[in-house]
Design a protein around this nucleic acid. Sequence first.
DNA 1: GCCGTTTTCGGCCCGACTGTTTTCAGTCG
Length: 570
Amino acid sequence: MKNQEIAKIFYEIANYLEMEEVAFKPYAYQRAANTLGALEEDVEDIYEQEGLKGLEKIPGVGKNIALKIEEYIKTGRIKDYEKLKKRTPINLGEIIAIQGMGPKQARILYQKLKIKNLRDLEKAAKAHKIASLFGFGEKTEKNILEGIAFLKKSKGRFLLGEIMPVVEEILKELKKRNEVEKVSVAGSVRRMKETIGDIDILAVSKNSSKLMDFFVSRSEVVKIWGKGATKSSVKVKGGFDIDLRVVPAKSYGSALQYFTGSKEHNIATRRIAISKGLKLNEYGVFRGSKIIAGRTEKEVYKAIDLPLIPPEMRENKGEIEAALEGNLPRLINYNDIKGDLHCHSNWNGGANPIREMAKAAREMGYQYLGISDHTKFLRIEHGLNERQLVQQRKEIEKLNSKLKNFHILHGAETNILNDGSIDIKDQALKKLDYAIAGIHSSFKMKRGQMTERIIKAMKNPHIDIISHPTGRIIKRRDEYQINFEKILRAAKDLGVILEINSHPERLDLKDEYIRRAKEAGVKMIINTDSHHKNQLSLIKFGISQARRGWVESDDIINTKPLNQLLKYFK
DNA sequence: GCCGTTTTCGGCCCGACTGTTTTCAGTCG
């Protein structure tokens, strides 16, 4: 599917155009990129079936952009985009990835200091050449250096959410092939880590050379790092590497265990094997030279007297000890969620009417859906005021009167203002089925002040849930400064639920905090923060994060049926 | 460059915040 590739180019075109101060076109390209990125159908299919006319039916795509999509499908490139890059030969995406840097500043830096990329930028900032530029200053220079340091931390890693569609696609293709007997993803993808370095795939095959031929000749492959009978390695268009390993069936389980990792977990399991006079490696569990296990992972763990440990827990952070003591948690399952309570409709920033969101939720097998649109402080998202909330309630009641075995709940994602108050009056909050509160402004408060701000919001007698409690955006924005222990105590005392936001860029709470929340006896909820009905499926990333935080079904309130769920709300 | 319609061209989201100015440009959400 080329949708994402084209969307990415359109975003970049928008940035270059913005840099050249072209009016309105950047907005048009951004809009086209947005819809393309969220499109269910493959643009290539649309083009094949209906040609340019079909492409023009996509919202935000007109004659010109349709032509560019056609050009990319036919030639794999877009000439206008290349012209833009040639005119200002800088790595714009890299520079504006720094928080606070935009296309306009990037252009000035190029014109005045010939800065083309992060390396140039870092050098110039360190030599204090930036602070003296007109429009720049000391703080900007400091921000640049901090931003670069932050980017370096997450460099070369990709979001699980960007990687997963690629993994699912390639697994599907491989499973279809006759020469493939078994195939699975391994590595950090299988452990569902929030960011991923590269993709490891493991297969059993009767004809590995045929399989490897296919693997390296797929259309997404841009570079072949290596190709052999048991291992091939390629780089694909998304910019990440995929390794495919072929192992014998008798070693499939041990290879899967070995390549899933983590390295720390493997060191611990091998140590246990040694203590039992055994040897564990990717080929199996051995007593002397005799193989005693290897075909399945379960068999491998059993051979060293351990139960099968879920991949999401394999970090050597206590799971081995828990397994030895028979205390492994029974992790929440991927089909335990009964409804999503953080969803936006087209009453504000969302894409779909409530009716369509509910339909999509129902098709997922949910029993309920909560609509929680932004409230008035967030003008940019057309946040709702008290009066609009009343109107929205009427619509929801009307829809509910027609629904059987499904219920739409009326909530709101209110804003925690700087002083900890809520941007919606208590009178209006009281009428909602539940109320979420979240921070959407002034992220850079001091630790103590920020903690108090959130705790004050939790004390509001109508607030039930705190959304994305730490505010981080993975690879882009650090979490805000809070005393998490204090927040946990307040949540426990006040009966406030903390959200595990499933959006791949947020995954907030993160795994470590989830575990601490569970230990503190704080209840959580897994939501998607969907702004489009397609995003409801992102719930799997929230669940995997919860599993990485050792969470059981009982810790999560939206695993409960409706009547029990409601008991958690004030 | 797209859209919608007043069907041929005007409008396109806009306020808060920051850091830099000395009244505002750029960025963010």
